[in-house]
Amino acid sequence: MRKFNVNLDQEMNVLAVAFANGDQEAGNKFVEKIQPLMKKYASKIYSPLEKEDLAQEFVIVAIEKAYDFAERYNDGKNNVLGLIYTACKRKLIDISKALGAEKRSLYKDREVSLQAMIGEDGDMTMAEKVASDMKSVEDQVTGKLNENALSQVVSDFVLNTKGRNSKIVPLIYSATKYDWDVELLNYEIGKVIKEETGSIPNNDAIRQAKSRAMKALRKAIEAGNITVANKLEWEL
């Protein structure tokens, strides 16, 4: 069992509760302290993701668990760090499963030779496809900057948002980044709604929840509440 520094446990518990109750300064300090912990944890474990990406995923999880701790587990028996690390382990399993399923669907019963014919009409070899998809160094750098900025946008949104939207937006981000199928995304959103309402939502409720979450993110950006969004390079 992972053992934590008692003083750090207590400090993070206090910050998590204050953060969940709307103290922005406490929220900033919570994130400031959790980021190096998540980076260190991500660097020690195997993951199909790059370590920086995984650490950012863990920070989002940590912010979510701060709210859960304040609302459900602040009973003197639990610590927010314990909840965070447990949730991060589950997150890693979910990521691995999603990527594993994607790889299996891509390569099952498929010739992997670079001369294998692919494409909708079977008129392009794997080698030609790789060559056509190669990006310039400038494009790769811009893409990486946008990816990092978008990840920070999601983190800032979660940091400044309460309720189901703060949990659904990260799911949509992960679904887009890791190319989840619609069924997996809807299943994960359904779990968020069920946890809140106690009942299993239908497809229409999930669709509406997804739409509201994205509208909330858009409004936050348009209102200037997420300044890091200005770093994104938009294609006009």
Rank of each mutant, 00 (worst) to 15 (best):
L145C: 09
Q208N: 12
K91C: 10
V158S: 07
Q140G: 08
R110F: 08
A149L: 08
D139H: 10
G224N: 11
Q115N: 13
L145H: 14
S113L: 12
E147L: 13
K194C: 05
V153R: 04
V154L: 06
D123W: 07
L185E: 06
I200Q: 13
A175P: 10
S211P: 01
I200E: 13
V112T: 13
K194W: 00
T161V: 06
R207P: 00
N148R: 14
K167L: 11
A131M: 13
D109Q: 15
A216K: 06
I200R: 14
S174R: 06
D179W: 01
I168W: 02
Y178A: 03
T125Q: 04
Q208F: 11
G163W: 07
L185Q: 07
I206M: 07
R164E: 09
K215T: 14
E120I: 11
V182R: 09
L159C: 04
R104I: 13
D181R: 07
E222F: 14
E222P: 06
A223K: 15
D179I: 08
V130G: 02
G163R: 06
V112Y: 00
V137R: 12
T125M: 08
K210P: 01
Y173I: 09
M126K: 09
A205D: 14
L159W: 05
I206W: 01
N160M: 12
Y187F: 15
S96M: 10
N203T: 11
K210T: 08
E195V: 01
V182Y: 00
G143W: 04
E195M: 02
I206N: 03
G163V: 10
A149R: 04
V158T: 11
A131G: 00
M134G: 05
G163S: 10
L159S: 05
V137I: 15
G122F: 08
G122L: 09
K191R: 12
I172E: 06
A149D: 07
S199N: 12
V130D: 10
A149E: 04
A98Y: 00
E222G: 07
K215P: 00
S151D: 05
I193E: 05
K219G: 05
I193R: 03
G190A: 03
E128V: 06
L184N: 08
E195T: 02
M214V: 07
V154H: 03
F157I: 08
V112M: 12
